[in-house]
Amino acid sequence: MKYAYYPGCSLESSAKEYDLSIRACCGLAGVDLVEIPDWVCCGASSAHATSHLLSIALPAKALVQTEAMGLHQVIAPCVACLTRLKVASMEMDEDEKLKSNVEKVLETPYQGNVKVRNILDVFLNDVGLDRVKMAVEKPLKGLKVACYYGCLLTRPPHIAQFDDVENPHSMDDLMRAVGAETVDWSFKTDCCGVSMSLAETDVALDLTNKVLEGAKDAGADCVAVACPLCQSNLDLRQKDIGNKFGAFYDLPVLYFSQLMGLAFGATTRDVGLEKVIVNPFPALGAI
C-alpha cells in the first residue's frame, strides 16, 4: 500500500508528534508513505475566506504533485488540509472551467485521477480492523478514551463522505481494536473554536471549555483527536480555561495515532508523547 503523504504546515512544528506517530503507525502497519517533495501550504483556513480560486489552486498543487509522482492516492492527516484537498479535487472534477483556470494558475495540466484519503479511513478500510488487532503488542487495557471528531472529519458529509455525521464511531472502533475503552459522550462533533483561538481567544475558550467538560464528565482519562488544530487548542488552552472558568481539567489530549502507536509497540519517543503539553504519563501509567 503506497500513498503520497502531505503532512501540512502544523505537522512540521506545533503538531510534530502527529507526524511522528502517523509515520510510526504506518511503518508498523505496512502503509508506505512517500512525502510529496517541496509541498506548499493548502491555504486553510484563510484562502477560502478571501479568494475562491486561490483556495482551490493552493491545494491543487499537492494533487498535481501526487500525479507527477505516479501515485493515485494522497493522505493528508491534518483535517483542515484534508478538507481543502478534497474540495479542490471534487470541484475541479465537476467544473471544467475552474479546472482550466487552476491549470493556468499552476502552469501545469491536471489529469484528475487523485483520490484524497482520510488517515482513519486508511487504517479502517485499507489496513482493516483485523490487521490492526494483529499488530497490537501492548493493548491499552483499562484506558478510557473520549474520541473527539470535531468539525471537519465528518462535515460537510458530501465532502467528507466518512462515518455517521452526527454520531461518528470510526475512531472509537480503532481505539477499541487496540484495547482501549471508549466513553459515550455528547461533544464528539461539537466545534472546539480553534479558528478563533488566536484572534478572539476569549470566544474560543467558551467552546473549548464545553468539549473538555463533556469529556471529563464522561469519565475519560484522555481525549483522542485526529486534527492538529483541535489538539493544540484543547491541549494548550487548559490553563487559560482554568483561569477563566475555574475549571482545571488536567486532561491529556492525544492523537489517536499516538495511542495506536503505543499499542503497536512503538516507544513513547517514537510517538512524541513528551511533546504533549498536559502531561499524559500519569493517565497512561497503568499501561
Binding site: S14, S51, L54, A57, V105, E274, K275
Partner: peptide, 24 residues
C-alpha cells in the same frame, strides 16, 4: 516541547508559490 520552530521553513521553489498568487 519542541513545538515551535524559530525560523521559517521556506519551500525550495518559492518562485512557483509567487506565481500562484500572481496568476490568481
Amino acid at each position: 516541547k519542541g513545538k515551535l520552530k524559530l525560523l521559517p521553513h521556506k519551500v525550495k521553489n518559492l518562485e512557483s508559490v509567487k506565481k500562484i498568487f500572481e496568476n490568481v
